[in-house]
């Protein structure tokens, strides 16, 4: 059932600019570092002489959480808006499909779109590194992959929460407002106590206890999805 809903959802987001957004984020991040390294090439390459790839990743790293949170917010909102715009909920939910399936399909769709973004981030960072003359043989494949995906897992609570807000509130201003605020606040994440989920993406990449943080992300994410699903199942559709 969920896959049927998902298959319909892929059709619905056609031409809505969601894929453009999903590509813009990671390529923009890499582009920004391209500018940074391009303008200060000699200085930066000298200071990172021992580990140029590590230097590049470090520069990218701090922008990933805000990009992830913003991306999560916007992807959820754009997806939900497809249904809100012309009140398609009443048609969709009067079809022989459970609300659980509809909700899970939306979650899986948002997750997969963000996975594509993370993969693009790894690829575009690698391409940038090569363009900057960093050696292909020293390329840290694992870290390049981890920089996006590990943070995505730690950001799952945010994804679940934003999806819930976007799907259940017709006024997307509320969901987007909350999401943007969280994204901006996340820039100061390193000063937060460890239990703050906004700090988890950075912790999941840098440590300590990466596994624990990822586990916490998955667990809290799952809890929020369950709560959202229960609410969505009971909600009256106007």
């Amino acid at each position: 059932m969920m896959f049927r809903a998902l298959s319909a959802d892929w059709l619905k987001i056609r031409g809505k600019g969601i894929w453009f957004l999903a590509a813009l984020g990671p390529i923009g991040l890499a582009g920004m570092q391209g500018l940074n390294f391009g303008l200060r090439y000699d200085y930066l390459m000298k200071s990172y002489a021992a580990d140029p790839w590590g230097g590049l990743l470090e520069n990218v790293l701090f922008f990933v959480p805000i990009a992830l949170f913003l991306g999560t917010t916007l992807v959820c909102s754009l997806m939900a808006n497809v249904e809100h715009q012309l009140s398609s909920w009443k048609q969709l939910l009067a079809l022989p499909i459970s609300r659980t399936a509809v909700f899970s399909a939306k979650f899986v769709q948002a997750f997969l779109i963000l996975c594509v973004s993370c993969l693009l981030l790894s690829v575009s960072t690698a391409v940038l590194g090569i363009m900057l003359g960093m050696g292909v043989e020293q390329m840290p494949y694992m870290d390049l992959l981890r920089i996006g995906f590990v943070q995505l897992f730690a950001a799952l609570p945010m994804l679940a929460f934003q999806l819930w807000l976007s799907l259940t509130l017709k006024n997307q201003g509320i969901a987007v407002g909350i999401g943007v605020t969280a994204s901006v606040v996340s820039m100061f994440a390193l000063q937060f106590p460890d239990w703050m989920p906004l700090k988890w993406p950075l912790m999941a990449y840098m440590g300590p206890d990466q596994a624990k943080v990822i586990g916490a992300g998955l667990l809290l994410g799952a809890l929020i999805i369950c709560a959202g699903m229960i609410h969505f199942n009971r909600k009256d559709v106007d």
Binding site: L11, L86, K90, L95
Partner: peptide, 24 residues
């Protein structure tokens, strides 16, 4: 139900296909 629900950016065929994918 009341005014029709549809996805404005899709064609009639695509709109119906989105429903067909769910109902089989």
């Amino acid at each position: 139900v009341e005014y029709p629900s549809y996805y404005g950016h899709l064609t009639a065929v695509e709109n119906l296909e989105a429903i067909r994918r769910i109902t089989g």
